[in-house]
Design a protein around this nucleic acid. Structure first.
Lengths: 112, 112
DNA sequence: TGTCAATATCGACGACCATCGATGTGACCC
DNA sequence: GGGTCACATCGATGGTCGTCGATATTGACA
């Protein structure tokens, strides 16, 4: 997917017109969240605090390469932190990164 | 794209594991936001309060069918309200709908 | 009714991406 | 070193969707 780290790009999607570049960046950030497997991985890892990748293949029901791929996408986006311990890989969520997306959605638009 | 209306589906993506169905619904909601053209349309319409579709083709730089398609996707998702006046179509954002996505991202996860 | 303007819909094409089998890369153990 | 386990990467494939030209639809106006 070739994901860049999610970075703060605008304050309030609904407050001012987005430039083409800003829209592209924000869309890329949302695209990371736009996959059910990735959402389940995030929710499982967050609920457990820190999780070994070996505990993720079974509950999601996808192949090992697929899970590994999605974990890489989430890590590249800066939503997960990866730590290798021996032959195992441990993942944890980085909650701060979600603030960027929340801020983009937080709006005080003109009443509709 | 065959979009369903965005509906509240979970409180806090990062608080508890998502079911397969909930993950699918939430991913569909994010997928609506995962396109730069749609984000620009939302930001332009929100900034102007209410906008005629005829004012949207030029600033975004896409063909009329493409703009119409994206406006339909956003309307089907419940993010826009469409009102026909004569031969013109007026669009306005429905800010409440964004709360669902914000709530999904609002988390009190176990510290990472 | 006929014409034109503003949108919506259709059909097709192309690009992106989720998925998986096969393979590569380290780490541990004997 | 040989073998095995956990995980990452590669290559190929299939499906989804953004895009646009062509066409249909709807309303305004004469």
């Amino acid at each position: 997917m070739d994901v860049k780290t999610i970075t703060t790009c605008c304050d309030g999607l609904l407050t001012a017109p987005l430039s083409e570049a800003a829209a592209e960046d924000l869309a890329a950030a949302f695209r990371v969240m736009a996959d059910p497997v990735r959402l389940r991985l995030l929710s499982i890892i967050a609920a457990q605090g820190e999780t070994c990748a070996c505990n993720l293949t079974a509950p999601v029901g996808k192949s090992q390469p697929t899970i590994s791929h999605h974990l890489s996408v989430l890590t590249d986006a800066g939503l997960l932190r990866r730590e290798k311990r021996g032959k195992w890989a441990w993942y944890a969520v980085i909650p701060d990164r979600f603030a960027v997306l929340r801020d983009a959605l937080a709006a005080t638009p003109v009443a509709a």
